[in-house]
Amino acid sequence: MKTLTQLTLALSVAVSGAAFASPEADQKAFQKFYESRFSQVAEGDFINGVYSILPAAREQWEAIEEFPPYEPEVEIGEELYNTAFANGKSFADCFDTPAQRENYPYWDADREMVVTMERAINECRTANGEKAWGWKKGKIAALSAYMSYESRGQEISVTIPEGDEGALAAYNAGKEMFYTKRGQLNFSCSDCHMYGAGLNARADTMSPAFGHASHWPVYRSKWQAMGTLHRRFGGCNTNIRAKPFKAQGPEYSNLEYFLTYMSNGLEFNGPGARK
């Protein structure tokens, strides 16, 4: 009980102290929270999610990574990347290289919105007269998997442009989403992935949110397929009996902006494999 109370206190200080803090100060406090709670985790290793804190499960996961379940998707994605649209152009006309992860998500000041890599993929399609793909799985996940694979090792370095009110508002909206309780079960993301990180809900250990945005899309054995980060957000919201928001809508895009910014300094290592 004592430790629970202490943790709750530490968390409430981290959260409320962050209420008026700058994004830089938030980020420092956020990363420090995980680094001190899981001091055994090697620097940079939070990108491996729950496996960074569970040595026993990690072995099994590393065995899976030897024959990665996402490999066929990466190949499909490569083919999609190189296949010409009806107008003769291809993704290579939108992106100078498939290794794009480090450029996303970013704040588009002209359109006043957060642009994720998946959004950029679909915008490339529609700009070339093709229909947009569904946001959560299928072709978009395959192409995103290929592009992430090509981007492995890039550093997460999301920026919130200085003096841009809109960017700051988007960041703050994402932050609020992360810390606000919702749904019939009354959970915030932080209840599970900050306060609850490392604790077990039944047999599931909850992962630290530091590193959450590094490894998408993910092949999940539960899905038997790849899914995007926004698909996962929707799943976590559904689990707490909250109505999920739309994939790539402003709520989840801002959440991705906040969450990725919190992991600045870590490496992108997608695509991932998870339970």
Partner: peptide, 12 residues
């Protein structure tokens, strides 16, 4: 701050 759900208040 608790993560325990409000079983009565939220009609769970």
């Amino acid at each position: 701050m608790t993560s325990m759900p409000p079983f009565g208040r939220n009609g769970i």
